[in-house]
Amino acid sequence: MSCILITGGNGFIGRQIARRAVADGHVVRSIARSGRPTLTEPWVDEVDWNAADVFEPQDWRDQLGGCDAVIHTIANIRESPEQGVTFERINGDAAIIAGLEAERMNVEAFVFLSAVGTPPLVSERYQAAKLRAERAISDLDIRTGVLKPGPVYGEGANQGHFPYLVNRCLRAIDDHEFLARHFGDQRPLGVTHVARAALRVALDSDEPELLMPHSIKSYSENSSQ
């Protein structure tokens, strides 16, 4: 059993990582500005939900005590500069702050959910911020891992960021390898694959430090990994 802190644990991917970590018997903590999600599933009661702003580490630093790994999932695909929501801040600075705090508290591993490219109709600043964070994280004096998925679709009740029909199309593509391979690194990936991969990289020092979409796909429900 390990202790995992998920930054953004009540988000689309963060919730799936938390659910799987609980199912695997791990101690799970989350920090997010909105705290506990509005879910009634039994696993939710097993997570230590903390309402905190990643940019104010003095309010959540104590949650790193005894943690074996931090998985950083905070990101945004829309900017609202008047509210302080910019790609530079949310997709870049947040990850760097979380990584530095993990290093400061001697956490064994830090995993960053990055992206293989910029989503359609989104500014290139989105990816530039994530790449800046990747470079900074690589300099940390702890074990680090970076996942770079393409579009991540929801499964079951966890529908994610895309409209219903788009989400179904992405899943249909992923279900047919002969179609998915034509998308290259932009192949769709199910959120469960991303969650499994993030947990493995966080907890297994033998896992690679960088996972691209084809590697993330290998962490399937039926995989022995």
Results as ranks from 00 to 15, higher is better:
residue 2 S to V: 15
residue 4 I to V: 13
residue 7 T to G: 06
residue 24 D to P: 14
residue 28 V to M: 15
residue 29 R to A: 12
residue 32 A to M: 04
residue 33 R to V: 07
residue 34 S to E: 13
residue 35 G to S: 05
residue 36 R to C: 09
residue 39 L to H: 09
residue 40 T to F: 03
residue 45 D to M: 09
residue 46 E to D: 12
residue 46 E to T: 10
residue 47 V to Q: 04
residue 49 W to N: 00
residue 50 N to V: 15
residue 50 N to W: 11
residue 52 A to H: 00
residue 53 D to S: 05
residue 53 D to Q: 05
residue 57 P to A: 04
residue 61 R to A: 14
residue 63 Q to F: 03
residue 66 G to R: 10
residue 69 A to Y: 06
residue 69 A to P: 08
residue 69 A to K: 05
residue 70 V to W: 06
residue 74 I to G: 01
residue 74 I to H: 14
residue 75 A to S: 09
residue 78 R to I: 10
residue 80 S to E: 13
residue 81 P to Q: 08
residue 85 V to S: 05
residue 88 E to M: 14
residue 89 R to P: 08
residue 91 N to Y: 00
residue 95 A to N: 14
residue 97 I to V: 11
residue 98 A to T: 14
residue 99 G to T: 04
residue 109 A to E: 06
residue 112 F to N: 08
residue 117 G to H: 13
residue 117 G to V: 03
residue 119 P to I: 10
residue 119 P to F: 08
residue 124 E to H: 09
residue 126 Y to G: 14
residue 134 E to R: 15
residue 135 R to N: 11
residue 136 A to W: 02
residue 138 S to G: 09
residue 139 D to S: 11
residue 140 L to H: 14
residue 140 L to W: 07
residue 142 I to Q: 07
residue 148 K to M: 08
residue 149 P to D: 00
residue 153 Y to R: 13
residue 154 G to T: 11
residue 158 N to D: 12
residue 161 H to I: 05
residue 165 L to R: 10
residue 173 I to T: 15
residue 174 D to P: 13
residue 179 L to E: 00
residue 179 L to K: 15
residue 186 Q to T: 02
residue 189 L to Y: 00
residue 194 V to H: 07
residue 195 A to N: 04
residue 196 R to I: 03
residue 197 A to R: 00
residue 199 L to I: 13
residue 202 A to R: 05
residue 203 L to A: 03
residue 205 S to W: 00
residue 212 M to E: 15
residue 213 P to N: 03
residue 216 I to D: 03
residue 216 I to F: 01
residue 223 S to G: 12
residue 224 S to P: 00
residue 225 Q to G: 04
residue 225 Q to H: 04
